[in-house]
């Protein structure tokens, strides 16, 4: 039985059978389901989807969501309806580093649009697009609670604040040379509060 995914996603049973999460991820998923009262383990679907997304290069395919449903012993639609509601879950492939630039309110007052335009020009992509080498995705997002250190962007678990064009340039260069994927669940993070 496959997830009944409408829209952009198709379900492939062979792909689904190939999915394997790391042992650490599987253990964490089991631990999360124990945080809730007996029979209420569905409550763990959001934290578990974060882990699943990090295990799958930063996005949730129909196959991965189906796999999560089987791990949690809930229906695939219960996973999909959650994944499609929350803005941090990506339902299509993304770059290794998603540059999430806050566009709201104080960040906007302090020049977020200049940051977005600079990244668009530098990486030759528009908001929502991914570079050809698969390294960066640019995404404008709503308020990230960094208004006093605006403008800012988030990449994985890290907050990069009080941005200037120079800071954005050196950040992109650094990430490009390191070449690794960055996820919300990363345990190493950077912030400048």
């Amino acid at each position: 039985m496959g997830a009944q995914i409408h829209g952009t996603q198709k379900f492939n049973k062979e792909e689904r059978n190939k999915i394997h999460f790391t042992m650490a991820a599987l253990e964490e998923i089991q631990a999360i389901m124990k945080r809730y009262p007996e029979g209420k383990h569905k409550s763990g679907v959001i934290p578990i989807l974060h882990i699943a997304q990090a295990e799958n290069n930063g996005w949730l395919s129909a196959e991965v969501m189906d796999y999560v449903a089987s791990l949690m012993k809930i229906e695939p639609i219960e996973v999909f309806e959650v994944a499609s509601f929350y803005s941090m879950f990506n339902l299509k492939p993304v770059g290794k580093c998603i540059l999430e630039v806050c566009r709201t309110s104080s960040c906007w007052l302090m020049g977020a649009e200049d940051v977005v335009r600079h990244i668009e020009k530098k990486l030759n992509i528009k908001d929502g697009e991914t570079t050809k080498d698969g390294m960066f995705t640019l995404k404008t997002v709503e308020c990230l609670g960094s208004c006093g250190t605006a403008p800012m962007l988030q990449c994985g678990a890290s907050y990069h604040e009080n941005l200037t064009i120079e800071k954005v340039d050196s950040l992109i260069d650094k990430y490009k040379s390191e070449g690794k994927g960055r996820y919300y669940t990363d345990r190493d993070y950077h912030n400048t509060l």
């Binding site: 945080r35 409550s43 959650v82 509601f85 709503e142 308020c143």
Partner: peptide
Amino acid sequence: CYVQVGAGAYICGEETALIESLEGKRG
């Protein structure tokens, strides 16, 4: 005491939406 992370939805600051989200549903 446990920490529960959300996944990006302003509406989950509304207390009943937060409760729905904590139950593993849309906010």
